[in-house]
Design a protein around this nucleic acid. Structure first.
Lengths: 246, 246
DNA sequence: CGATCACTTGAGATTCGTCAACAATTGTGG
DNA sequence: CCACAATTGTTGACGAATCTCAAGTGATCG
């Protein structure tokens, strides 16, 4: 959540204490919240890997986003009556629950947190848009490369990818559900990525062996992640405007 | 913008006067704002049809969303440094520009407007997610049916579709760019939709002839649009919480 | 040690894309 | 109002990407 702008020390401690108060451990493949449900609290992934998904009439599952540690899951139930999709874990995960009233209070009194939440929502949108391009205009090979590279970047941004190595506990079926391809085809494309020396996947442990090559295979351009002002740069105009706003 | 909750009369008048003050007419296929740009104002489509799109390296265009009258185009430049995609018109359109400071002021002092903007952003997200499913798991026929049905619903929600008839001034190429298909294939699928008596397209004027059939062809489930509490129902818990919030 | 789940491989079917030609419509200048 | 150009829509033949089905290998776990 600090990728848009660093929090004041006070806010960081406050958030840490909030996430420590109500935690729950989920097994792999458990639901955190289901389509149609409303929740009085919002959830934040602390460790593990989760995803937004939807079950379709024909029984297939579409994964619409991966959620890495630090990602808020369901800030939207706050405004909308119910979830229009489900959140489920892919690996054993630790998830914090923050009561709605507390979030209200944060939005009211902690502009840095409000800004971070807003930024997170906008980043989500950017990622979704990119995934549409991905699905619509790239072939299976690029699509898979894109997905892997994006997950890698996002994990690295939260300090979970050292030296191009990271845990990515998904099955080839999960990747199929996320890309809209079949497991069989995912398998073949993974082989190609491996043969070409771009990645290495040993069990759930992945390694990016040729980041530039992978990026190229994915036709990746990063500006949809809006990471570029992640640090202590002087605030932008908009940032300044909003700082005292909420 | 009132689909989530009606505005107080005062707010409505305020917004109307704001949109009247700075309007600009665009021809078909003009850009309102381009990828990479930052704008000191946000734009709202008043009439016509616009879209969010992105040009890819290979020269193709991906349309990620249609913007119908009432839709805010670029509320995000408010927070993010620059647009990660472009907004362009598809037909001659009237677009209002509202200066950033005014928006700041609205967010501060007009909870109903703040809520509407937030809701609009969340609805956008839902639509994007649905489009991912669309691209990933539906065949060309359903994809096209889905797109048409969704546009119809959104136009109807803003009073621009009487009796299943509405203006939808797009070429088959535009539809191809929006669905990730080729114009040729769009043509064939449109023929099929016509043959089956689901739709009628005479020039830019479209008619839904069999809404239920189209809905079925599209595998459409509407909850991602979150229209269900469009009217003067008692406020939800979240709505009440937020009312005094921003 | 057997069962289950994930992964791998091959062959054939299907959807959709590509290319190329042509028809219909719209727009434009004379 | 006409003639022509440009854009949009339509059609067919063919090829490529991806899916489906089916079988088999390999790991993991009780």
């Amino acid at each position: 959540m600090e990728q848009f702008r660093r929090f004041p020390e006070e806010d960081r401690r406050l958030l840490e204490s909030l996430t420590e108060r109500r935690q729950r451990h989920y097994e792999a493949r458990e639901d955190v919240i289901r389509e149609g449900e409303h929740s009085p609290e919002i959830h934040i992934v602390l460790s593990g890997l989760a995803c937004r998904y939807k079950l379709l009439e024909n029984g297939t599952r579409q994964i619409m986003a991966f959620l890495v540690p630090g990602d808020p899951c369901d800030a939207e139930v706050f405004i909308l009556k119910q979830m229009d999709h489900s959140i489920g874990t892919l690996s054993p995960s630790l998830v914090a629950a923050i009561p709605g009233e507390v979030v209200t209070d944060l939005l009211l009194n902690r502009p840095s947190v409000a800004l971070a939440l807003w930024w997170s929502a906008l980043q989500d949108e950017g990622i979704l848009r990119e995934r549409i391009i991905d699905a619509g205009r790239r072939d299976a090979y690029s699509r898979l490369a894109f997905l892997i590279y994006e997950v890698f970047l996002r994990l690295r941004a939260v300090g979970l990818a050292e030296d191009g190595r990271f845990d990515f506990p998904v099955t080839q079926s999960d990747l199929a559900d996320a890309t809209g391809l079949t497991p069989v085809h995912i398998n073949r494309m993974l082989q190609r990525l491996r043969e070409e020396g771009l990645i290495l996947a040993e069990g759930r442990r992945w390694t990016i062996r040729d980041a530039a090559g992978l990026r190229q295979a994915a036709h990746f351009t990063a500006n949809h992640l809006h990471y570029d002002r992640a640090h202590d740069e002087p605030d932008s105009e908009a940032g300044r405007r909003l700082k005292g706003l909420i």
